[in-house]
Design a binder for these strands. Sequence first.
DNA 1: ATTGCTTCCTGAGCGC
DNA 2: TGCGCTCAGGAAGCAA
Length: 264
Amino acid sequence: MPELPEVQTIVNGLEPYILQKEIDRIIEYRQGTINTSCQGIAFGRVSSLDRRGKYIIIKTSKAVTIIIHLGMTGKLIYKKQVKKISDHCRAVIVFTDQSRIFFDDVRTFGKIHIFTHNVTFKALGKMGVEPFSDDFNYVYLSDKLKNRKAPIKNVLMNQSVVAGLGNIYVSEILHRSHVDPRRISGKLNKEEVGEIITQTKIVLREAIAHNGTSVSDFRRIEDKKGEFQNFLRVYQKDYCNCGTAIQRNKMAGRSTYFCPRCQK
DNA sequence: ATTGCTTCCTGAGCGC
DNA sequence: TGCGCTCAGGAAGCAA
């Protein structure tokens, strides 16, 4: 399940392969994967590759913007030579040198949005601050949490508050911050809010340094796994470092892991 | 404005 | 061996 570190790992991996490479065509193998018909689009060369939240943003020399969201199980696999189409292939970006990016996605929650003009993508406009930016600070977060009655876990998962966090990293961040995920957002004290900001930046940086977390489907562009699953402290764990059994609850329909002793 | 539930989708795992 | 059930969860859409 790709969150910010996994998406960043893919962007970092793809960049040296596809920057300045000319897109020949994009093929949709499963209807509904791409928002528009790709027929007759002159794409041009890849001029930039970026991440915003969990979105991958590719811009081209001919003012085409390709925005990719991997959903739950989406993968981007880069191949120089193609023998056969991969399993669950939903779309392919073909470059003029015949190398390709395969967009594989078992559960089909992933989507590709192509804009040929300067159309603003609604989802990006509503997105909250980037966790690594200076804008993700105490003043910002405490204002977002103020008077909110939803549990802190739910608010941190909300992309319009902070961009890029999902179920795994929110569990890890709250564990390292010693905050119970069920706590009412508006009732956290100053130290706790500050700690959440600090730990968010630390956990995400560590995860990127280890090429993301592969608990099930996530793969890097060479189809290799990330390694951060080896460093998780609560997510899908049975015991905390302190020896206490990790508790598992459903919150907002999602499995939530926490240590009842370390997280108050 | 905020919150919480439902929906989309497929494969793995499990009990029987 | 296979059937039916549950679970995995990002985000849009909608209802309260």
